[in-house]
């Protein structure tokens, strides 16, 4: 969704019957993509590692409607949903992850290191926050009204870079939108064991506004966040939006140490179950279409030749 920087506040209709077809299809496509990756891994067809965003798909789908293509988006190790919500390009992303022709970054970056236009992901926790603050500094002077949006997790709050960036973003009034996907777990360590105090308290310590989102209803989320995000643009001021969300899958692949009943409880709160019930008429059809689409993409990409990279000339010895 493209919105001019100076647009009037958007009108987001109530979501009485679940998300509209476009949003639901996008969420289902991301879900199908992530499930496909685990399937490909299980069959030994993928190299390396990956981190799926199963359970968190609605967040970038909700956020992308609030962003302009001129905004910068910084993603992280769990970033497939962020990329797909922005570009709707499962073939380019899968080719990147599989090292096939048509890969977004020639297969060099893989799952965690992707750059396209104003989207960039990195694999080191917390590293992108100062970089995003630098981009926000540039935007404030060169393109006022645009912002840098950076996705981080609850685990990222263990990194000092987060606080260095918070401090500077607040002091210098930078248009930095920090989206926290608090899924309650950092790899295998629950939030209660890695985070003292609260994320809200940490934002408050730096004089940064914080908003908690507990809903997974994309329309409601947008309606709530739209004026807050507009304020980041108009006042050039940072904002932390914390989503209470759920990670349904393992940290990477097959490394989930949580007891099955705990994961099952999360599944029952998942947007997928909620939407399946709320849109019972169209849900099975859209879900089948998303899966069929991803099946076809996977078959086509798997059959491609290897990606080519000319490398960068480095005059080292």
């Amino acid at each position: 969704m493209t919105r001019p920087v100076t647009a009037e506040p958007a009108v987001f209709p109530a979501e009485a019957d679940g998300p509209d077809d476009a949003d639901l299809s996008l969420m289902l496509m991301i879900r199908a993509f992530e499930l496909k990756l685990l399937d490909l891994f299980g069959r030994g067809l993928l190299n390396g590692t990956t981190h799926t965003c199963l359970g968190q798909e609605y967040i970038p789908v909700a956020m992308e409607a609030l962003l302009d293509p001129g905004d910068h988006v910084f993603s992280n190790h769990r970033g497939h949903g962020h990329y797909l919500a922005r570009f709707r390009d499962p073939a380019g992303l899968l080719a990147e992850i599989m090292g096939r022709e048509g890969a977004v970054c020639a297969g060099v970056g893989g799952s965690q290191h992707i750059r396209r236009d104003r989207f960039l992901s990195t694999g080191v926790q917390g590293e992108s926050l100062p970089v995003a603050a630098g981009v926000a500094l540039h935007l404030k002077r060169a393109e006022p009204g645009r912002l840098a949006c950076v996705y981080i997790g609850d685990g990222t709050f263990g990194e000092g870079a987060v606080y260095e960036a918070f401090n500077i973003a607040s002091l210098w009034a930078l248009p930095l939108l920090v989206v926290v996907e608090n899924n309650g777990i950092a790899q295998s360590t629950p939030t209660s064991r890695h985070l003292a105090g609260s994320i809200a308290g940490r934002a408050a310590a730096f004089g940064i506004d914080h908003h908690l989102v507990e809903s997974s209803d994309v329309t409601e989320i947008r309606r709530t966040l739209d004026p807050l995000v507009s304020r980041v643009r108009s006042r050039s001021t940072p904002l932390v939006v914390e989503f209470v969300t759920r990670r349904l899958g393992p940290h990477s692949k097959g490394d989930d140490t949580r007891p099955a009943p705990a994961v099952q409880a999360l599944r029952e709160q998942d947007w997928y179950a909620r939407c399946a019930a709320a849109c019972s008429g169209r849900f099975p059809r859209l879900d089948a279409e998303a899966r069929a689409h991803i099946d076809a993409v996977a078959a086509e990409v798997t059959a491609r030749g290897p990606s080519r990279w000319e490398g960068t000339r480095w005059e080292g010895p």
Binding site: A132, G134, V135, H138, A161, N167
Partner: peptide, 13 residues
């Protein structure tokens, strides 16, 4: 750390 990251963000822009 952050200041070097800021510089990287500026360079990226």
């Amino acid at each position: 750390n952050a200041v070097t990251g800021l510089a990287a963000g500026l360079a990226l822009s």
